[in-house]
Structure formats: structure tokens, C-alpha cells
Nucleic acid binder design. Structure first.
Lengths: 237, 237
DNA sequence: GTCTATAACCGGATAGAC
DNA sequence: GTCTATCCGGTTATAGAC
């Protein structure tokens, strides 16, 4: 099912369909932000976008699919922010902290909606689920980012740890987001605190990970990550 | 709002209302198991229970509230199973493994529904959310269980760790459950593997936690748990 | 073939009579 | 406590316009 037969490379941004699509997303985000997800009806979204209800469904399979749109938006914004951080910081600790803070800062406008996003994402059958094979590309991109966090830093790591650490850091990022979603504190102070403290801990752990005493534990952790990763990825048939 | 003015202690199990309530829950669990949660309508549940639709809503605020009923069921079953385990096992590792395996075994009949349960539980506003103040009693009970796992064991722990370890083990349990929900492997082999390996790791960690080298890290971890716990519990107003 | 609109359908939830 | 009648909103069927 070819979705987008590449348009003639002259008119880059907007066919009629794409403009309509964008109008719907914009209306949805605006209304979600105003009355929340459940408080916004598809009929309102359609009206605000200047299209009929049926037309909205022509572009988006379901109300939940509209969520994915905003998800991609913040994701892109986050990547942009990270470039600055990675160019600026040299220490592993600072790089990691910067990337995580950028995450919650770019996502802040959508905090209210994120609860719903998370709710759908939690469903094992949802394509938004971060562990599903459908979100493999996003997952890969996110771990890739973590690899850059590590590689650009001045820390020296055991080779085995170096290889698997990105996945572990991605898991940590997921945990931080989970916490953030539940965080109603002023200025997300709790999440900031969590980031500060866990980053500090991770740095400590990484710095002692090379000691001989830690070898058995390190091996356990790393081989487990390896085994479980196999299972998450779809068998290549 | 007094929900259950204790019935006269002569007739223990069933007033008319309680029988109706039970009939609805039974019908719901049966149908959920058969056609899944989304595949079952409230109208069907009402019909199968021999009551009207409106009446079903008299007893349960919403379809989701029916989920809580089954949640409590498995919880009770788990506690029962654990008694045997704790009476039998002496080593921390064995006790912990036993409790976790009991969890996924008692929950097995409900694996299919659990995805939905989890989905609702993930909503920050849901009372089913394990971090919400509404589920504080369940959370307390679960950490209490972990305390018994530790205290009955033969391991010797630093005092500070001993105090906070139950909470950490509860977090670990939550992670295992999260994994289990996504686990479609034969006999939940993947989750069993995860339990085996993580329990092994926890045992290793605990055994080296007392070494002087580990002191700073241990302090970090424990004080963080402490701080975050404050935030989860509602301020006593 | 791409896009848009109107009119149902279906099921969760509520109102109010008995 | 129990019912019937309705509402409301997500979703779908379908017909046609460009």
C-alpha cells in the first residue's frame, strides 16, 4: 500500500489534501489543549477545521490517531533541542541531564494531553506502545540519541557496557516520562529533582562499573538486556 | 458517603443488593473472558446477569469500574498463595522468586483482560493507578508483603537498606507485571525468565550492598526513594 | 482516483418513573 | 432497587463532487 507517491519535486509543502490534514491536526491540538481530550468531540474538531465529520475520518482513522500527530511533533522538537545540548556539554552527566530536561521542556505544553497519550500507549495492542514493533523506528532513534550522549562524552567505559548502555538509558528515559506524566508539582519540580538525582546515580554507577567487584553484576545486567531485547523485536520473517 | 452500613451480623453473605451485585460481576468476568473487554457490551452484561441496563449502572459507575472487581479477586488469591511460599522458603532469593511467580500464576486466567486493566490504571486520574492515593491501601499491603519476604529471610542487610528495600521490591514487582502484560510467549516463559534473572541480580546487589565502596550509591538510591515517596502520598490535611 | 458531505449505527451513560 | 426511554459522541456506510 503505497501511501505517498512522491509528488513532483517542484511543489514541496502542500497539496490540498495535506492542507486539510494539517488543518484538522491544528484544530484538534488547539481544542484538546482547551477542553482536554475527552472534552473535545470529533464533531467540534471537524467544525473548527472547517470540514465535515466524515471528512475528518477520511484523514484520521480514529480520534486516537490524532494523538499520534502531536506525539511526532514533540519528538521532532526534542531532537532539535538536543543538538544544542550535545554541542555544548562534554561530561556524560551533563549531556544526559540536558537531553532529559529538553524532553520534559519540549513536552510541557502537552502535559495535560500526555496522560491520555500514555493511556493509549500502555495498551499492549496499541501501535503507540513504546515496546511494540510498530514503534521500533522511534525506539531506534531514541536509543541512537543515547548512543550519541555517551560517545560524545569524556567517560571511559568497559566495552560491553558501552554497547548496551544506550538501551538502558532509553529505559531510564521512559521511566522519567512515566513519572513526569503523574507529576502535578509546580514547574514539574519533582521530575526535575528525579532527573537530577538519577543522573547523578547513573554517573556514579558508570564510574564504578569497571571495578572487578562489579564484573558479575555487570555481566548479569547486560546479558539480560540482550535477551529481552531479542523478544521485543519482531522475528524477521 | 457510607457505602456499606455493616449488615446485622446474623446474615453474613448476601442481602438482595449484594446478590445482584455479585451476579453482575460474575456475568461481566465470564463475558470479558469470552469476548474480551471491548467485545462485551454493558447491555450483554446486564442481560446475562438478568438485570436491566440501568440497574447495572446503579451498581457500577462505569464499565471500567467492573475491572476493579476482578483486580481485587486476583489480589486476594495472590496473598493466599504467598502464605505457602513464605512458610516454605528461607532464602531471600527463593522467597522473592516464589512471591513473584505466585503473582503471575494467580493472574494468568486474567492475562487477556489485564491489558485493559493496565490501560486504565495508566491514566493518572484513574483510581486504579497504582501510584494514586486511592490505591494507597493496596500499595501498602504489597510493600508489607515485601517486608515479610525480607524479614523472614536469612540475609543480613545494612539497616538503611533494610528499611527501604520493600518499596524498591514493590517497584520491581510493578515492572515485572508491566512486562508480563506484554508477554505473549508460551507459558509466559519470557516473564519467568525475567523473574529468574532479576531476582538473581537483586540477590547479588543486596549481597554487595554492604561493601564500603557501595556506600555513596546506596545512600543516593535510598534517599531518593524516600523523597519521591513523600510526593506520592497525599499531604495530610 | 481523490476528496467531501450527509445520514445512520452502536454502545456507554443518564433521567426519571415506579 | 429496578426499570424504560433517551441522550450523546465515536464510528461507519454511502453517495456523490471534483
Amino acid at each position: 500500500m503505497p501511501k505517498k507517491p512522491k509528488p513532483p519535486p517542484t511543489t514541496p509543502p502542500a497539496t490540498k489534501g495535506e492542507r486539510t490534514r494539517a488543518a484538522i491536526v491544528d484544530a484538534a491540538l488547539r481544542l484538546f489543549h482547551g477542553h482536554g481530550y475527552e472534552g473535545t468531540t470529533m464533531r467540534e474538531i471537524a467544525r473548527a477545521a472547517g470540514v465535515s465529520l466524515g471528512n475528518a475520518y477520511y484523514y484520521f482513522e480514529s480520534k486516537e490517531h490524532l494523538i499520534q500527530a502531536f506525539y511526532e511533533r514533540t519528538h521532532q522538537e526534542h531532537l532539535v533541542e538536543c543538538e544544542a545540548v550535545l554541542a555544548r556539554e562534554k561530561k556524560l552527566e551533563d549531556r544526559l541531564r540536558g537531553v532529559l530536561l529538553a524532553k520534559i521542556d519540549t513536552a510541557e505544553p502537552y502535559h495535560r494531553i500526555s496522560g491520555i497519550l500514555f493511556k493509549t500507549a500502555a495498551d499492549p495492542k496499541s501501535p503507540l506502545n513504546p515496546f511494540s514493533s510498530a514503534s521500533e523506528p522511534v525506539r531506534r532513534e531514541a536509543t541512537e540519541l543515547m548512543r550519541r550522549v555517551i560517545e560524545g562524552s569524556s567517560s571511559k567505559l568497559p566495552a560491553d557496557l558501552n554497547e548496551k548502555l544506550p538501551e538502558l538509558l532509553w529505559l531510564h528515559e521512559m521511566s522519567v516520562i512515566l513519572f513526569w506524566i503523574h507529576d502535578e508539582s509546580e514547574g514539574r519540580a519533582r521530575t526535575r529533582h528525579l532527573i537530577e538525582r538519577t543522573v547523578e546515580m547513573i554517573a556514579k554507577l558508570v564510574s564504578i562499573a569497571g571495578f572487578p567487584l562489579m564484573k558479575p553484576l555487570r555481566t548479569s545486567v547486560l546479558s539480560l538486556v540482550d535477551e529481552l531485547k531479542q523478544d521485543v523485536l519482531p522475528p524477521k520473517t
